[in-house]
Structure formats: C-alpha cells, structure tokens
Simulated assay, not measured.
Amino acid sequence: MILVFGKTGQVACELARLAPDAVFLDRGQADLSDPEACAAIIHAHAPRAVINAAAYTAVDRAEEQEALAAYINGASPAAMARACAGLGSAFVHISTDYVFDGAGNTPFAPDHPPAPLNAYGRTKLIGETGVRAAGGVYAILRTSWVFSAHGSNFVRTMRRLGAQHDVLRVVADQIGGPTPARAIASACLHIAQALQDAPGKSGIYHFSGAPDTSWAEFARAIMAQAELDCRIEDIASSDYPGPAMRPLNSQLDCSALSTFGLARPDWRQGLTEVLQDLKGTS
C-alpha cells in the first residue's frame, strides 16, 4: 500500500488519477503542523511506500509565517522519514528549486550547495536535511513551476486573466522549467517502486519540465494554445516586487533521472493536456 500525504494539491490530485488504490490523507486526517502525529499515522498504516505531496506553498505568506512553514515543510517531513526508516518503507519527498539562490545561468546540479533566498526555501531545506538524516530509503525530488488543471497555478491564472485583458505584463528575467503535476506524480510512483527494488538509489534528484523558458515565454505559449488574443509584455522582476525574493535562475540539472530510466517531461505537451482538461470543466 502507498500512503500519500496530501489530497487536494496539484500533485496529490494527479496521484489519485494514477494510483486510485493509494491511501490519501487530507488536512483533517493529517495535521502537518504536528510532526509526531504524522509519524504515528505512518506507523498505523505500515505502508510499503510514503509519498509526501503536501506542503506549505504560500511563498509570500511564509515570510510572515516562517515558524509554521518550518513545521509543515521541515519538521513533519523529517518525522515522516524517520517513521519510514523504522518500518523499512520507501519515502518520496517533493522539494523545490527555491533551495537555491538562482545565481548564474547554468542548471543547478543536485549536489550544488543550497542557499535559499526566502522563508519558503529555507523551510523546504530544513525538510530535506531531516529526510536525509533519517537514514532510511528515500528520494528527494526537487521540482519547479508546477502546473495542472487543479488549484492555484500560473496556467490557470494566465488563462483567466488572458480572457479579461488585451495586454499582460509578465516577468521575463526568471528562467526555469515549467513542470506538469501529472508528470511529477508519475515520477513519484515510479521512483517509489524503484526504491523498494533498489534502496541504494536513495538520494536527491531534480525533475523539471523541458525546455527551460521564462515566465513571459510560458505565458505566450499559454495564450497561443488557449487561443486567447492577449499580448504579453516583458518586465523585469524588479518591476514586480513581492514580500519574498524569487531566484532568477531556476534551471535544474535533471541528468540523474536516468538512474530511474526517467527523462524531463515536455511542458508544452503537458500544457496541451491541462488546457484540454480545463476546457472540459469550464
């Protein structure tokens, strides 16, 4: 049995499509601000694998709620990993490109020294450190720019705003790989099985969509595929300041995915699928 922390988030929704027999835990069933409660749930279910698809993801709000985010993103994943280690269960944990500072213009390798710019990144790094220290069978999957037909994400926002405006100003100096949540879910399931067969493959991996692009170019692709007559105007990050700093370079070196026979997903195909899903619900 696979136990999934998360039920309504983007990756969790896609996991439910791909693995309907898994057990999914929502916020009412698993309080991620209570690490020991999360560990107790794992001990009670004794699953063969656990996927943590839940997190505190409000990047700007985390600047004011870093202590809470540190429990949800840091202490609880560490407690989950320790529980899994005790049971011999594989643990797959989703992390983020925000553990890096975004310096330079080359992709970050999994072993590049982390240097988060914001509270969200700091709390996710705490989680990574705790998972690694637990000593069990694990994979930390760092990803970026997640999108799907569910929840709040860039594709849904651009689709909505593009139908309301003739011009939108979008940041063009942040570069990264948009990643379909469905592809992340599929990778998590594949890796969870692979770790049971080959626990020595434990480690940190990067998984982001290809090709790397800017938010502005991503927005143009959304408008084109959604057949919306909305022009995208490039702006700099400094023109759109927020409480939390964002890395300019979110490119991830995903070459280690070959360990699991995986490759970067094409976000353009993923975008087509998401827009088709949204068209069916609107």
Rank of each mutant, 00 (worst) to 15 (best):
A133R: 12
G135Q: 12
V137L: 06
V137H: 03
Y138S: 02
L141W: 10
R142F: 07
T143Q: 08
S144W: 12
S144H: 06
W145N: 05
F147V: 08
S148W: 10
G151T: 03
S152P: 01
F154R: 06
R156M: 01
R159Y: 11
R160T: 14
R160M: 12
D166S: 14
V167N: 10
L168P: 13
I175M: 12
G176S: 13
G176W: 11
G177F: 12
P178D: 06
T179E: 05
T179S: 07
A181F: 11
A181C: 03
A183L: 10
I184E: 13
L189I: 14
L189P: 07
I191D: 11
A192C: 07
A194P: 07
P199H: 09
S202L: 03
S202Q: 11
I204A: 11
Y205C: 00
H206G: 05
F207M: 12
T213W: 04
S214R: 02
S214E: 04
W215Q: 15
W215E: 07
F218L: 13
R220W: 01
A224N: 03
Q225T: 04
E227A: 14
D229F: 03
C230W: 01
R231A: 14
I232P: 04
E233T: 01
D234T: 00
I235N: 02
A236L: 13
S238Q: 11
D239Y: 00
G242M: 08
G242E: 04
G242Q: 13
R246E: 00
P247W: 06
N249P: 05
S250V: 00
Q251F: 00
L252R: 08
L252N: 05
D253Q: 02
S258A: 15
G261C: 05
G261I: 02
G261Y: 04
G261D: 08
